[in-house]
Nucleic acid binder design. Sequence first.
DNA 1: ACCCAGGTGTTTC
DNA 2: GAAACACATGGG
Length: 220
Amino acid sequence: MLSPLKAYEIWFRCYGPQGWWPADSTEEICVGAILTQNTSWRNVEEAIAALKKRGWLSLKALCEIREEELCEAIRPCGFYRQKARYLKEFAISIERGFKTLDALFEKPLKEARNWLLNRTGIGEETADSILCYAGRHPILVIDNYTLRIGGRLGWWPGEWDKRQYAAAQRLLMDNLPKDATILGEWHALAVAHAKAHCKKKPSCGSCPLLIKGQTHPPSD
DNA sequence: ACCCAGGTGTTTC
DNA sequence: GAAACACATGGG
């Protein structure tokens, strides 16, 4: 069975460093993490560009602007009404509870994570993205790509979904270095690999994990 | 005319 | 708890 760390090494050689999270500030990472929920990154880029153009890419601005104006700007990324609401709540509650993002990130990981999970619109994946990529905390983001890959490689029996988030996260992190840079790169590479070779409809030809002579998938 | 995308919350059994 | 549904734009 291919270990998660071995997969990382192969992915890294094959796809190279992914440069996640692409952003000019930690605030931009948090905004992007919310905007990209079930949405292609391409659409998110448009929304972020619109925010940047208006000078709204800061907690302070997000607190002050009207929600209707925010909707207009982020429309291209879809689900824009609820995402505008999520962004407002996030910005306002950070401002009230911590004043700055750094103050949140200085809290212990578990405490910061629980606080994030209590914001409407921030679930486990979004919380972990914020903590890992913006807060530089050593935690692994689990997304549907990773759950699919893990099922196909036999890391867990069959196709797990988000209900097994904690179990998948523990299993993988137990087999990876507790390092924010490595864990962030692992997740980015998993996404790159899934897009290239692990789609919903299985088509494993030329998959680098197969070329390396590993047995996979277990469903065969 | 479908299916997919760097999910989350609510409702309903 | 677990399904089923709502949320919405844009590309293949």
